[in-house]
């Protein structure tokens, strides 16, 4: 799957959370391309694509923390250490509100840290604001 300009990379292993997030995008009429990576490793594969420097990057990466294999924090470290993705906006979107996770998230260069609300209405609202900010308001990397 190739990334288009203005796309969103959702890194999430839980199938329910994937569907709910996609549902939330749909409810907010966000029609940008959403690419789903089910693990940190897969996310890095998608970001580095065929290795060409020209391949487009997503506007924002929505990253879960707790995933089997490479964790969200590990994936974030890789993203920040690679010249091509060093400045890519990464938003941590997780269930955890542990101080440790928040500190590690920001410490490793996350642009934002959002805790997924349990109440779906609140979640839809959070996704709406995320979309508004990162897809419309915020200028993506050239």
């Amino acid at each position: 799957m190739t990334l288009q300009t203005g796309s969103i990379l959702l890194v999430e292993d839980n199938i329910d959370d994937i569907d709910l997030t996609l549902m939330a995008f749909k409810r907010n009429n966000i029609e940008n391309q959403v690419i789903v990576a089910k693990s940190g490793e897969q996310a890095l594969e998608i970001l580095h694509g065929d290795g060409s420097e020209k391949a487009p990057l997503p506007s924002v990466v929505l990253m879960d923390i707790n995933m089997p294999g490479m964790s969200g924090i590990e994936a974030l470290k890789h993203i920040r250490s690679h010249p091509r993705t060093r400045a890519l906006p990464v938003v941590i979107l997780t269930s955890s509100k542990e101080d440790q996770d928040i500190i590690e998230g920001y410490g490793n260069g996350a642009n934002s840290y959002i805790r997924k609300p349990v109440n779906f209405n609140e979640f839809v609202n959070a996704v709406k604001q995320l979309g508004m900010y990162w897809l419309l308001l915020n200028e993506p990397l050239p």
Partner: peptide
């Protein structure tokens, strides 16, 4: 705190 919230959501 983390894993129980996902199914609730």
């Amino acid at each position: 705190s983390h894993d129980l919230r996902a199914p609730l959501r």
